[in-house]
């Protein structure tokens, strides 16, 4: 990998399970490993139920009550003396509260999820600043105005006293971003930050995220289902399917030479602005299985065009080794083996 700086967060072999009312446990994440590096954007892409949001929530320890981390580590500042395993901290403890917002910020898909209707924008942002490191009311207010200016909100001196419901969707998401940045975190998780927005607003918000991430050297984890957003924003890409990272690679490699059959199929099924009229799209047969009906072996095998009977449907291929480009697929493993022999 081009960047060998130490990651700010390393997720290792993370497994998360949800208990269902009256049913057995459902595995939502299975051995997920990811690295977030300063100044880089990790794009996490996948369809519904792939576990991309669960990963984010686990990293902030805000899983729903019926979910729990079953295995693995989430290391903050790995390899440094301050290394902390987030999975080992009490979820509601002081340290975790410091990390949430202070070290790792979160941008929601629906900014209303993070904002209260009863308080002004300024109130909420000032609270976020003062909870972590109180500089006093007057200073905090000045910082909020600067923050609002940073996220591209026009006339921040007046907007600071408006209520979220008085703002348009685009401005609300800007406030959502300001809220995530209030305590100056160096890691930012954006969970589908533009899915609820119109396309022109999306372009603005993506440009803003890009600028902030570069300026502040933030390690950004961008979660989306949109391959276009990934192509425009990500440095590295993790493709997830049914709770596993099936492929990890730098963005150019993923688009130019996808390794995993799922990535290949996903890329082909994206509607194209240059396609001839009435041209058909490549599809992936079937649908994403329900999480409680996880296929045995490789989770993608029932939909995979390259499925090897007796192998893919019995054992799961090894996860992608952290920090290396690769795919969790027997076909890819075999190809690498052949290449190795030839060399």
């Amino acid at each position: 990998m081009a960047d060998n700086s130490l990651p700010l967060v390393s997720v290792r072999n993370l497994a998360v399970e949800f208990t269902q009312h009256g049913g057995g446990p459902v595995r939502a994440l299975d051995s997920v490993s990811l690295d977030l590096r300063p100044g880089r954007v990790l794009g996490v892409v996948g369809e519904s139920g792939c576990g991309k949001s669960v990963t984010a929530r686990a990293m902030l320890r805000i899983l729903d009550r019926n979910g729990s981390i079953k295995n693995g580590q989430i290391l903050l500042d790995p390899g440094t003396p301050q290394q902390t395993d987030i999975t080992a901290l009490p979820g509601e403890g002081n340290r975790m509260r410091e990390i949430r917002g202070g070290r790792i910020g979160l941008i929601f898909q629906e900014p209303m999820a993070a904002l209260s209707m009863q308080y002004t924008v300024g109130n909420q942002l000032m609270e976020a600043i003062r909870v972590h490191n109180d500089p006093g009311k007057a200073v905090a207010r000045q910082r909020v105005i600067k923050l609002l200016n940073d996220v591209g909100i026009p006339r921040p001196e007046t907007r600071i006293d408006t209520y979220p419901f008085q703002l348009s969707g685009g401005l609300r998401q800007r406030v959502g971003i300001a809220l995530a940045l209030a305590a100056d975190p160096d890691v930012l998780i954006a969970d589908e930050p533009t899915t609820a927005l119109d396309v022109t607003t999306q372009a603005q918000i993506l440009a803003l995220l890009r600028r902030l991430q570069v300026d502040k050297k933030i390690a950004l984890m961008l979660i989306t289902h949109d391959m276009g957003v990934i192509a425009q924003m990500a440095d590295d890409v993790a493709v997830m399917y049914l709770g596993r990272v099936v492929e990890f690679a730098p963005v150019n490699e993923v688009f130019a030479a996808p390794r995993h059959p799922y990535t290949q199929a996903l890329l082909r099924s994206v509607p194209n602005l240059r396609a001839p009229p009435h041209s058909r799209l490549a599809t992936i047969g079937g649908a994403v299985p329900q999480p409680n009906a996880r296929p045995k072996g490789c989770p993608f095998h029932p939909r995979c065009p390259d499925m090897m009977p007796g192998r893919c449907d019995t054992t799961a291929p090894a996860p992608v080794p952290p920090g290396q480009a690769g795919a969790s697929c027997f076909k890819v493993e075999d190809a690498a083996l052949v290449e190795g022999v030839a060399a």
Binding site: L171, V199, T200, Q204, A207, D226, G228, N252, F255, L267
Partner: peptide, 21 residues
């Protein structure tokens, strides 16, 4: 131009339109 193109080699060819609907 606002539609994100699924090609990392074609980034930010056009500036996003300003303002809101």
């Amino acid at each position: 131009s606002a539609v994100p193109k699924a090609d990392p080699l074609m980034r930010d060819t056009a500036a996003a339109p300003i303002g809101e609907v």
